[in-house]
Simulated assay, not measured.
Amino acid sequence: MKTLLPHWLLPNLQNLEEISMHHCDELVEILGAPTSEDKEKGIDALIKFHLPKLRELRLMKLPNLKSICSTSGVMVCDSLEDINVYNCDELKSIPPFVPLVGNGQPFAYAPPSLTIRSSTEWWESLEGDDHRNFKNVLHFNLW
């Protein structure tokens, strides 16, 4: 398995509260982007991954995991509280998590209640400036 959840499956998973992946050597992506076939059908490259009840994302010992969601996607997860990352050395970025306020507008870069648990080495290996935005609004537990 290379992709855990393709984008077209997400509307059927609106009650999903936890994603926990462990010891899956072939997994490359958690939330899958549209395929080239989807793009030919006119599906927009920018995707909002709506998981309104997702509270926890646990990623452990996934040596080939490169992304949580596609680079052209954002995660709309108002209830996300905890992300655990352990031994996912190829994961080099964190996607934008965009909670929505009452009027449907983005609140911030991430839910204010979100805690990321990871090793200091992994945190320091993140590429780009996106992870720096998390430091302003998130609580971290680094091992």
Rank of each mutant, 00 (worst) to 15 (best):
T120A: 11
N12Y: 14
D89K: 09
K41G: 05
L138F: 02
V76G: 03
S113N: 14
G32E: 08
R132I: 15
P52V: 06
K61Q: 10
M75W: 00
P6T: 10
Q105G: 05
S72C: 14
K2I: 06
G32H: 05
L4G: 06
W122P: 10
L27A: 10
S93Q: 05
A33R: 15
K92A: 10
G32M: 06
S79P: 01
P112C: 07
N103V: 07
L10W: 02
K66N: 12
W123L: 11
P106A: 07
C77S: 09
G102H: 03
N133V: 04
P6A: 07
P63E: 05
L91F: 01
G42T: 12
L142P: 04
H139F: 04
I116H: 05
S72P: 09
A45M: 11
E18F: 04
N133D: 08
L65M: 02
E26S: 13
I83Q: 00
F107I: 01
F134S: 03
V74C: 08
M1S: 07
G73E: 05
W123Y: 12
L54Q: 03
H7C: 15
S125K: 13
N103C: 06
P99M: 02
L13V: 03
N84A: 03
D38E: 10
L138W: 01
H50C: 12
K39I: 15
Y86W: 12
I19S: 08
N64M: 09
L57K: 02
F140E: 07
E81R: 13
E17L: 07
T115P: 08
L27E: 03
E90I: 00
C88F: 00
T120C: 04
N103S: 12
G102P: 02
E29F: 01
W122F: 07
S36H: 10
F140V: 06
I83D: 00
L100H: 09
D25L: 11
C24G: 00
L57N: 04
E26Y: 02
K92R: 12
E18A: 15
I47R: 09
P111A: 06
C88P: 02
D25T: 12
S125C: 13
L114P: 07
P6R: 11
K2A: 10
L5Q: 06
L51T: 11
R117C: 12
L31D: 08
D78Q: 08
R58E: 08
H50S: 13
K2M: 08
L46C: 14
R117T: 15
D130T: 13
Q14M: 10
L16R: 05
L138Q: 11
L62A: 02
N84I: 06
S118G: 11
L16N: 04
F134M: 10
Y109C: 13
E40L: 13
P112Q: 12
K41A: 12
M21I: 12
V28L: 15
L31G: 09
V98G: 00
F107S: 10
W8D: 15
E40W: 06
D25V: 13
G73N: 06
V101Q: 02
T3L: 06
I83A: 00
S113A: 14
N103F: 01
I83M: 05
P6L: 03
N103W: 01
Y86Q: 14
M21F: 00
V74E: 10
R132P: 03
R132M: 15
T35C: 05
G73D: 07
L80H: 07
